[in-house]
């Protein structure tokens, strides 16, 4: 593990500080998810768990205004790291200190209620992100406009296509000026025109000072958006540094594979 970044000389504004974070999951060999099973196994005495460390001793810091990409193969711990930073998951060891509010991009409208209309979902989803009704009222027009769904606002979202869903979700998550925006593989959906629009939106927010944590299947998108990259491998921090160097190395290591 090496830290290419030089953050000792001038003291910058640190917004995220990940200190020796480890996260362990107890993988039951077979999942015990009922009382009955629990008791049966307890009596038989075969209630075994296997420890699995999805993150092991990861440390890095993010400065305000950075756009940090997380790369690594599937299962390397990217989503787990983002969850720890977002406060959804507590680290088993170590700590993640975050100074500011986090706007997570919810996966494909996970926060939507299918039976409510798009309009109602805007307010519900906004509240999930901690925005009061007045703020959402103000942002309403820009959300509708960005999502390009003006005619569909009174339609229950269960009738939306997945593309429409993600457009709406993206528009809601990116209102205002959050300190930190977390984007975990949400740009895989939707057409390329909308993807481009999203990337522009993210860059706009960065220009306004938002710090971005970005995970994407597409290493090309990471190169476009991010100035720093965290490379995870089996839960360990392999490298952290400037996008260009790390992405080159990553690409040459996995040359044959489909990492685009």
């Amino acid at each position: 593990m090496e830290n290419i970044m030089d953050n000792s000389t001038n003291k910058k504004d640190i917004i995220i500080e990940v200190n020796n974070v480890s996260r362990c999951f107890n993988l039951a060999r077979e999942r015990v998810d009922s009382l009955k099973e629990y008791f049966v196994r307890k009596v038989k005495g075969n209630l075994h768990f296997e420890e699995f460390w999805a993150l092991k001793d990861v440390s890095f810091t993010v400065e305000r205004g950075d756009a940090v990409g997380l790369i690594g193969l599937n299962g390397s711990g990217k989503s787990t790291m983002l969850k720890v930073i977002a406060g959804v998951l507590k680290p088993t060891e170590g700590s993640a200190r975050v100074s500011g509010d986090v706007a997570p991009l919810i996966e494909l409208g996970a926060g939507f209620d299918p039976d409510l209309t798009a309009r109602e979902n805007i307010f519900l989803n906004g509240a999930l992100l901690g925005h009061p009704r007045s703020v959402m009222q103000e942002a309403y027009d820009s959300i509708v406009e960005f999502a390009e769904l003006r005619e569909f606002m009174d339609v229950p979202v269960k009738n939306f296509s997945s593309g429409m869903n993600s457009r709406l979700a993206f528009s809601i998550a990116t209102i205002g000026k959050p300190d930190i925006l977390i984007v975990d593989e949400v740009l895989a959906v939707g057409d390329s025109k909308f993807q481009e629009k999203c990337i522009n939106r993210i860059e706009e927010m960065m220009a306004k000072g938002t710090t971005v944590l970005f995970v994407s299947h597409s290493i090309r998108q990471v190169e476009m958006v991010c100035n720093k990259v965290v490379w995870l491998e089996h839960g360990h921090l392999k490298k952290y540094g400037e996008t260009k160097e790390i992405c080159e190395e990553y690409k040459s290591l996995y040359k044959g594979m489909d990492i685009r």
Partner: peptide, 21 residues
């Protein structure tokens, strides 16, 4: 305090779903 609006939205969601649908 921060998430009080959420409580309101969740309750109104339940009510709408129950009484409108």
């Amino acid at each position: 305090r921060k998430f009080k609006p959420l409580l309101y939205e969740l309750v109104s969601r339940d009510i709408k779903n129950k009484y409108r649908r």
